[in-house]
């Protein structure tokens, strides 16, 4: 269970997140959608205990993130929007490193690494240096490393980004399994079909504020729109604008 209450985050003069509140229940996938720069990643970093909030309160399974970020990091799995890995280690060594820091018993670690690398098809890369891997493969290493400690809560920032269709599918199925086991999952993406298929509830965030929240169905009914794309454009003031912008662009080229 993730509870975000009146969360504010400022970077000096810019306020990235303005008093947002939402919660992700146990056994729920909550999708954060929003245009570039709307504050998704900032919110997720705060939830994962990586950066401190300016004000407001975030609790993850009852633990206050500001008061006890280490405890939250222990139970959370976080996937950053761009993989942060040690490029001169091999994936195997990298997993050993993560497992050691997180104190995962060796048996469990071995089993998870084996199963996950087979599932994501990276078992033939386990001995290559991470620096030489392709972007998608790095993303897979990042995903696997965030799951090694069997996290109770998952914070996934554009995790399907860069994955091939098969791996994206596997990740989605895995997340659905996790959800069924009662874990809370906070998920952000720009791929609206993924959001619609995967998320139980969606929060649309715009300029640091949540402007609408609900199941995909509720959002469509509420805005009287046909597709999630239309909902998104309408709520983030993109609709109407798009046509004008496209027209102006045609003139420029």
């Amino acid at each position: 269970m993730i509870i975000v209450e009146d969360l504010v985050k400022s970077f000096g003069p810019t306020t990235a997140v303005r008093e947002i509140s939402f919660s992700v229940n146990d056994g729920e996938i909550y999708g954060l959608l929003g245009p570039n720069g709307s504050g998704k990643s900032t919110t997720m970093k705060i939830v994962a205990g990586i950066i401190p909030p300016t004000s407001g309160k975030v609790t993850v399974n009852g633990i206050d993130v500001s008061a006890n970020p280490l405890k939250v990091k222990e139970i959370a799995g976080y996937i950053p929007e761009t993989p942060a890995l040690y490029e001169s280690l091999t994936p195997m060594e990298f997993f050993s490193f993560i497992g050691s820091i997180r104190r995962v018993p060796k048996k469990e670690l071995e089993e998870r690494v084996e199963k996950l690398s087979r599932a994501f098809g990276i078992d033939s890369f386990l001995g290559e240096l991470i620096g030489t891997l392709s972007f998608g493969t790095k993303q897979k290493v990042s995903i696997i490393s965030s799951l090694l400690h069997d996290p109770e809560v998952l914070v996934l920032d554009e995790a399907v980004n860069g994955l091939d269709p098969k791996s994206a599918r596997i990740l989605k199925e895995l997340l659905i399994d996790f959800k069924k086991q009662g874990r809370s999952i906070l998920f952000s993406t720009h791929v609206l079909e993924v959001a619609e298929a995967l998320c139980d509830r969606i929060g649309i965030i715009y300029r640091g504020e949540i402007v609408a929240e609900g199941t995909p169905k509720e959002l469509k009914e509420f805005t009287k729109e046909e597709s999630l794309e239309e909902v998104f454009l309408k709520l983030t003031e993109g609709k109407g604008e798009v046509e004008g912008i496209v027209k102006a662009l045609r003139e420029a080229f």
């Binding site: 050993s96 050691s100 670690l109």
Partner: peptide, 17 residues
């Protein structure tokens, strides 16, 4: 190329770093 993929090794955190 092809560094041997040796097995996983678990150390205490300080040592792992």
């Amino acid at each position: 190329r092809n560094r041997r993929a040796c097995g996983l090794r678990v150390y205490p955190p300080e040592l792992a770093l």
